[in-house]
Design a protein around this nucleic acid. Structure first.
Lengths: 358, 358
DNA sequence: GGGGCAGTGGAAAACGTTTTCCACTGGTGG
DNA sequence: CCACCAGTGGAAAACGTTTTCCACTGCCCC
């Protein structure tokens, strides 16, 4: 059941059948129709493998997720971006081949997938320190795009959120509401969600002439335990120093924070405001609905794929680095702080911020 | 950089190089070594695509997960079985191509992947009612194995847990501890986790001459809300009818139950015992560690893959249906009930069960 | 009427393997 | 000394496409 049989049945040559399935090839409508009809009657389906061999590409991108990415302990971020990638790939007639598990941490497995011809390139995510994956791919001239993180190698293409700007925007939102003591809840250091978001946070504070207080930005990890203990420390501060708002640099962190606060019988946003970042699906359904920065997941995935394709065509096209804006989504988890000692400086600043905000 | 270049460099013919990479082919150790050396020097890597073309198989199995399987709202079950599949495939030198997302619900997308030659067969999971996926694959003689569910079509191969036996074992465990009022928490009907597990539960009760009480087996869904409301109803029962143990037919349900009970300030297992089913990773780390039935995920995945491969070789080998035993894992979430009115019938039965248990 | 030209379809070479058959070698037993 | 055999390596045919070149057909315009 090959292209030959169709050609025989339609009474044309083999090459013409190939052209009949290529919308850009010049075949008269009549012939095209006749060939297509013959193909359907024969139940012919072109072989992707044979096509891949002559074209020298499989139209498949390998997506390298961290090991165990689908585990519920993993932030929902991965599943969300995964769906976005799937959709973006479908539109571009690309296949996604999932490369995950602990065997993918080392570069050779991925590399062999590429040299095999099974993948034309890779989309990958944050790698733990000491991982040789990205350097190895770059050195081997393998098309690769890093998603939602950044790299220092100028050859590396990446697509990330402009985290400085987004953290700035969220901090500004909280300041506008009248908060002055805004705690920052980050994860571990090396990820792009941490450093730039801290920077945006501090910049916004500075603009509003609010002194940065390191007691409100405790170091910690993404682990629920770390988040919980930091919240404990923050709530144990004397009332005048206690934060009136929690800016979690990640929705996953915010979700934990919400749960912890609920356990402590603190009301959000009445007793304390909570803001997240990412707008993962589902955070709008929390109680209260989470105020957060929306990542344009679809756009991110689309750009990543496009960047990858252009590298596949010409490897020298790599090194494009995209920072996309996130959008503030105000929901129910943030509100002006209750009247406390920390409120005294509010009135003047609030009006000032209002005009900036518009 | 093809097999030809290696042949030239090693001074042998093209076919000999191919054989040198096939461990079963007859090539003298000397020649083989020489060829391998030449290949390494040239940086030669065999093309999986060319191989697939002549062999007519891609050594890739499509795994069709329910849409959005990685979302955290999805039971961790999927990510666990996914990891097991990945591992099993690696051992068998097979690739896994993930086929998920809402576009996979309809059969044509999967089918075209098969006719393409990109997949040699599929592993799939529970399908919503009205899905044409499995019938369509079977009708098209596509190798397919259903995992952790069952189908009525005799052509369908599946690998599932012997849920009747496992539910029986867990119910027995709770009876042995002295529980007489054991509530069952199921999900929606059509899944194999529900009907057979209910059957095993009832059988164990009957054996122990404990009357089945439909008030302890309320219908509901997998949704947290449904679980919560059923627990509410159960706890509102008059003390004599209130359950002393909760058998959740799924760890995901048990996890929710644990959370709900914690919110109600009920201690597990002192106030009420909770048992799960599946032994998802992480349930051992809960507080308290969950007593559950361990699914042999690795074995399940291995059998599934083997069943699929045998179908790929000969489509008439399909229709094999495997039921694997689960293993009782007793941890901290189950304990004998406190002395209550329901305890009076305990003593005789307990001793009787003890001997059965050994 | 002839020379280009656009439009169409065919012939054939590639793509990089696997696999089958065949030939050659040297050793061994009759 | 010859025939057979095991062991080894080569030649060549597949596998099913895409793509490049080439030829043919009308057609238009000079």
């Amino acid at each position: 059941m090959s292209i030959r049989d169709v050609a025989a049945k339609a009474g044309v040559s083999l090459g013409t059948v190939s052209k009949a399935f290529d919308d850009n090839a010049k075949v008269s409508p009549h012939t095209r129709e006749r060939i297509r009809l013959a193909a359907t009657e024969l139940g012919y389906h072109p072989s992707a493998v044979a096509r891949a061999m002559v074209r020298k590409r499989m139209d498949t991108v390998g997506v390298i997720f961290p090991p165990n990415f689908a585990a519920p302990s993993r932030p929902a971020f991965y599943s969300t971006i995964f769906d976005a990638l799937l959709e973006a790939a479908m539109i571009r007639h690309k296949d996604i081949s999932l490369c995950t598990g602990r065997l993918w941490v080392d570069a050779t497995t991925s590399l062999s997938r590429f040299r095999d011809g099974r993948c034309d390139g890779f989309i990958t995510f944050w790698q733990p320190a000491g991982s040789d994956l990205i350097p190895a791919l770059l050195d081997a001239d393998v098309p690769v795009v890093l998603l939602n993180d950044r790299g220092s190698d100028p050859r590396l293409s990446y697509v990330d959120i402009d985290s400085v700007a987004s953290a700035h925007a969220m901090t500004r939102h909280l300041l506008d509401l009248g908060h002055r003591r805004i705690a920052l809840l980050c994860g571990d250091k090396p990820v792009s969600t941490v450093v730039p978001r801290e920077e945006g946070y501090r910049a916004a504070l500075e603009e509003a002439s609010v002194a940065y207080d390191s007691a409100l930005n405790l170091p910690g990890t993404f682990e629920p335990r770390s988040i919980e203990s930091r919240i404990d420390t923050l709530l144990d501060l004397p009332p005048a120093q206690r934060p009136t708002a929690l800016f979690c640099t990640t929705d996953s962190i915010a979700l934990v924070a919400l749960r912890v606060l609920r356990q402590k019988n603190l009301r959000v946003p009445e007793d304390i405001s909570v803001a997240g970042h990412d707008d993962l699906p589902g955070v709008a359904l929390e109680h209260p609905a989470l105020t957060t920065m929306r990542q344009p997941f679809g756009t991110i995935a689309g750009h990543a794929l496009d960047l990858l394709v252009s590298q596949e065509r010409d490897i020298s096209a790599r090194g494009t680095q995209l920072l996309l804006p996130a959008e503030l989504v105000v929901r129910a988890s943030t509100a002006p702080p209750l009247i406390t000692t920390s409120l005294k400086a509010t009135a003047p600043l609030h009006s000032e911020n209002k005009e900036v905000n518009e």
